[in-house]
Amino acid sequence: MSTIASQSWFMTARLLRGTVREPLFLIIGLVQPAIWLLIFGQLFYRVTDLQGFGDGRPYLDYLTPGVVVMMALTRGAWSGGNVLEELDHGVLDRFLVSPVSRAALIAGHLCQQAITIMAQAVLVLGLALAMGARFAGGPVGALVLLLAAILMVLAVGSLSMSFALVIRRSQSLTAVIQFVLLPLVFLSSAFMDQSLAAGWIRTIARFNPIDWAVLAGRSALAEHPDWQLIGTRLLWLAVLAALCALVAVRSFRSYQRSL
């Protein structure tokens, strides 16, 4: 195993150990998606009656991929908070003084995020099934949705960590998340079919990575997945995630310069 890979694994294992020892955060992370499913699912279930909404599936089926992607988005967005905590406790400095690769420090966090979001997504899908959702796409469709959620968490997690390293204030991180997250979700097809939205929203959604992830996941879970749509959206997400990870590794330099 190359050095970076093994170092990344040590970091991932360290973080996962913490997650397993204190599973409370994982559970709290599931409360929000459960509420979205329960409340939105009930509140808007008649929306499918609208002319031109979706492909005739019940609203719960339509909603579930959106909720999974939103959970990934939230989880990724707060990952900067973990970095800030490490920074405050001197844990990050301790690592930076060792010959560990900077990429491995970021990769450890990203792997931990990816693994925990997988577990959470499986639980949310299980809950949706229990509530009566049906996914014709089956396990393959579920895997595509998981992949989309992972790419989402990698991209947003990297940006959040970069922000944490450069700005280094948890209040600012909170403010940005609260300001950006929800509007971006509503500027996608997570809850509402874009063909029924205003033109300008449709235009924005086309460039919104949240929409890419939701479209790919939803199509994969349908009876007749559109593999061209799924393939292109996943590819765009992968490119975005790679770029964001690069930014995160680079932001260590800014951190070092400011010390």
């Binding site: 360290r14 150990r17 913490g18 020892r21 405050d88 406790h89 001197g90 844990v91 400095d93 301790r94």
Partner: peptide
């Protein structure tokens, strides 16, 4: 360092 650097979860 002054700030410990011990990972509290381990």
């Amino acid at each position: 360092a002054q700030r410990s650097g011990v990972d509290a979860s381990g």
